[in-house]
Write a protein that binds this DNA or RNA. Structure first.
Lengths: 166, 166
DNA sequence: TTGCTCCTCACGTCACGTGAGGTGGC
DNA sequence: TTGCTCCTCACGTCACGTGAGGTGGC
């Protein structure tokens, strides 16, 4: 695709990753990447002449965001598409790719993106609260377990002590 | 099942809930409850003479815990079964339902439950950290959105302000 | 007896997992 | 040319959703 010949093999498709490399880097299966491609959720920005997928650094980041929103927030792929689409539209506006956009349309996009951000913030904050409650419950239970062990003269190994300090 | 006749209709199966009542209370579908029953994950503690499911208060609590572990922690039903089973085994020990259990077995159960608790604590703590990072990212993005809106003289409605204060 | 709720199949769906069989690229 | 990776079907799975057709309980 480039005019000048690149140095050698490793740099032929400089900055482009094969599907297996992306899979390893982001810890997903190649099946997952092909599925996202099929849905149009994450499409590789180019292909080899033989038809195999070539992912850019940006594509890789997009895959990572999808997994984050899915694993951490529990969103489904359609919700994730909505969020990523909104962010992309605002990024376009900010970089003024589309100078001819009307002020009304501009306003609509900013309001949509900002309120989507606000509701997502609310969901995340709510989730943190629930997790903190859940952690407190676990800690209270652990206290009971330790008391029971002490009462029955049972020594507890290190595996019974949580790693993360607070 | 009871010797004395209960007062009237509403109290016939005192403390027992029909599947639809549980579904409404815990915000799950009846299909989900039947699926949990089929898996042996949450079985109703009794049935009507006609064969319809009757859930106790305890069953309802168990359903609630399943949904919590699933929605908040993203565990699958087999992992949830493991956690609930371990907790139940320890509860048995603590209430000494089984006096004839050997000290070695007793120790094994306590250690297993306590270390399961510890690893779960670690997972919850890790998840909280990720969510806090995610929330910080969202807040940073919101700041950029507000700046863009101000620069373009676009007023932002209340829907663009998150509700939860910290 | 009339509704409403319950029951059991059973097919559909979402987000992939897992081979089957064949081609591409260094 | 030899491996390794890639490709496209296509069936399987998990955790249900959604009717179809029929029985139970106040």
């Amino acid at each position: 695709l480039s005019e000048s010949d690149p140095p050698a093999g490793a740099l032929r498709d400089a900055g482009l990753y094969r599907i297996g490399e992306v899979a390893e880097a982001v810890h997903v299966s190649t099946r997952t990447l092909r599925y996202y491609d099929q849905l149009g959720l994450v499409e590789p920005s180019s292909h080899s002449q033989g038809g195999s997928r070539r992912y850019s650094q940006g594509d890789l980041q997009r895959v990572f965001r999808v997994r984050e929103l899915q694993a951490v927030m529990g969103f489904n792929l359609e919700e994730i598409r909505t969020i990523l689409d909104a962010e992309a539209r605002l990024a376009e506006l900010q970089q003024e790719y589309r100078g001819g956009v009307s002020p009304a349309r501009k306003q609509a996009i900013v309001v949509e993106v900002a309120s989507l951000n606000a509701t997502t913030q609310d969901k995340v904050a709510a989730k943190i609260l629930i997790l903190e409650e859940f952690l407190a419950d676990l800690q209270a239970a652990a206290k009971r377990y330790r008391a029971f062990a002490a009462q029955n003269h049972i020594p507890l190994p290190e595996s019974c002590t949580p790693q993360k300090v607070n």
